[in-house]
Design a protein around this nucleic acid. Structure first.
Lengths: 220, 220
DNA sequence: CGTTAGTTTGAGCAGCCTCAAAGGACGTGG
DNA sequence: CCACGTCCTTTGAGGCTGCTCAAACTAACG
């Protein structure tokens, strides 16, 4: 697998400087990496495992705004506070950068800042896709889009995408798609009965009919 | 009203350079500024009026991902293509910057790029709030959040926020909140009957019970 | 095995949607 | 000035998707 993590894909003097300020950290599943509204002192780059980001309403309703995997950046809020909570879905290893020191490096290496901006713009496009999903797609379309997203990111990481890895619980999926656990479960069984997917176990799904998933995701 | 537009808040040599590459443009209501997937040749800074951004599904279902007002930036996708369609809600004036020239300026004035990154991060936080709204709020909470958003941005622009300006149609509001026109209308009448808001006309709403709106928006 | 946490399945319900029609606002033309 | 058409909004009635509540099933672990 090609290495997509930020802290391993650095060149020349950027690399040396970044290495000097990073710390390797790890988190067990269900552990909180940081809380919403907490001081945003660190930026992370995931090297393995998976992370969920979420926001809560006053009465406890939860919306997961994104999942992060190896290579993804975490906490690039340049504000003083994090705007969401980050929690490990399964054991996570990451590189941690003190935000202030990282920002100082930006002054000497504007290329780093360019990459940051590029990543922020990509995330923004993903967020807009997710808004389309949450606001206008049916349960079936949502689940199909979700599975495709997992498959595509798995491919992008260079992993085998035949069998889709689903490290998160039904509850996490539901809170990501704006559904209930029950609806996610029912929709998966429906897709299974239609032979669009094949459930190996709760954490491994095979996309038998990928075209069907794609049509569903695009709302055709 | 204090001037919040980018092209009028520039200092020193940044200002001069930016002035050299910008063009003043305008669009009538319902006019398209650019289409999704089109080449992203320009970046805009709104100086007056309001804009809606949207994405479409294959069968025509629409999700408005955001509204822009005076001072807001448009098209900061640094990709080669726009990721959404931008359309004027009411007559718009804007400054237009050729993307390539703007990016060249970034090399000489890293401060500009920093501001861009800051804006992208702010937009990202707004997008996450919107995901929480779309995925987990009820119709009433959505409408309350929407009205508060309009009021807050109006204040931020230095305009009187006693009477909320609602330049967009019910159809636009519906497609922004993931609802139907009818539900938006019904919810507004419900809020009116509860004396939480007062409808002057279709484009002007008074937030009589702002605390009530805030509680609704936060899901308490 | 017993316990616990997570998932699936079922039955009934409700919030929001769909379809339909009436009510306003606005502009055009007689 | 009013009649008329168009577009948008509001209101009503009924239906459906996805939610709630409840129970059975499964897997992991001591």
């Amino acid at each position: 697998m090609k290495d997509l993590t930020f802290c391993s894909s650095l060149h020349g003097s950027e690399h040396d400087h970044l290495r000097q300020i990073l710390t390797h950290v790890q988190f067990d599943g269900h552990n909180t990496i940081f809380h919403e509204a907490e001081d945003a002192d660190y930026v992370f780059n995931i090297t393995s495992g998976s992370v969920k980001l979420y926001k809560l309403l006053g009465d406890g309703r939860r919306q997961i705004t994104g999942f992060l995997f190896a290579g993804d950046f975490l906490g690039l809020a340049l504000n003083t506070n994090y705007s969401y909570t980050a929690e490990a879905v399964e054991p996570v290893t990451a590189c941690r950068f003190p935000r202030q020191k990282l920002e100082k490096l930006f002054d000497d290496f504007p290329q780093l800042e360019k990459r940051m901006l590029g990543m922020a713009v990509d995330e923004l496009a993903a967020a807009q896709d997710q808004m389309l999903l949450l606001g206008r797609k049916t349960a079936k379309e949502k689940v199909a889009s979700f599975l495709l997203m997992l498959a595509r990111r798995q491919e992008h990481r260079g992993e085998d995408s035949d069998m889709i890895n689903v490290p998160m619980s039904r509850s996490d999926i539901a809170d990501y798609l704006g559904l209930t656990i029950e609806t996610v479960s029912r929709t998966l069984t429906q897709l299974r009965k239609e032979a669009t997917i094949s459930l190996k176990d709760n954490r491994h799904i095979e996309a038998v009919g990928r075209e069907m998933l794609q049509d569903l995701a695009e709302g055709l």
